[in-house]
Amino acid sequence: MPQAATATILTILETKFSAIVEQWLGTQVKEGVKRSDLFSDSESRAQNAELLKAFAKGVRAGVTDDDFDLADPAWEDLRAVLADVTKERVSRGVTPTEMATFVLALKVPLFAQLQKTLPDNPSSLIFDVLMVTRLVDAFAIYTNEVFIAEREQIIERQREEMLELSTPVVELWDRVLTLPLIGTLDSARAQEVMENLLETILQRQAEVVILDITGVSTVDTQVAQHLLRAAAAVRLMGAECIISGISPMIAQTMVQLGIDVGTVSTRSSIRTALADALGKVGYTIQKNRDH
């Protein structure tokens, strides 16, 4: 049986259901968060009704002694609906403010209904208003959490994709691999690049590897260190490493920084590096006489 304190709220939710849904929609329009550009009228209405149904169910089972815990199994439906609605809205580009306002707008119709039901009982009215406030605030906080979690998931996925995309080892010819490096080379990426490269050398039995740094904007001592370590590891595996795409600018910087490349071959362009690499595995590039 519902507690006396939430009885009024529950009655309102059950008897004035469609009125609350309509009023809620009205408040959303007034607050400017309805986003009719993203959701159709019927869609919004269905979403709101579903949320409200789950809300009523939660109030019926999840509030004891004027207290509630949104993590309780009784609130499972509501949590699920809130999460669904939030995810749906995140993917359509709704801002966190709009999302929170959307949930908080539920207070307006509920307060109005409470006032109508309890006009002569101010103490009960205040008590119920407080209860509704606590409930709706908890929903808003939960929504925000889901919102942030969803965003973080997107960021994490993109980060992984970027890491994957940025280290493609390409087989140029039999036993010749190239790794075009683009962007910045921090420790995490350097590690990933190196592991990926060494694995591919093993798989393809590659003899020459061209590390192309045309797309690397700046080379400082740390980046150079990463490159030279990769080259050293490649040599230990029994393959040869050529670093290509060293621009005049980068060559100057490297000398000014006192970076010693040791026995690692360096070339200015991938073009010369490729000719070199093919030569090492026994091929020559020949011009066709007909052209």
Binding site: R229, A233, L236
Partner: peptide, 24 residues
């Protein structure tokens, strides 16, 4: 030499400059 071993040696600073290396 396995990739993991190559990485470890480089990290330990053992570049083995005097040894020659081959795939197989």
């Amino acid at each position: 030499m396995r990739p993991a071993v190559a990485v470890t040696l480089v990290e330990l600073g053992l570049y083995l400059p005097e040894t020659r290396t081959a795939l197989s």
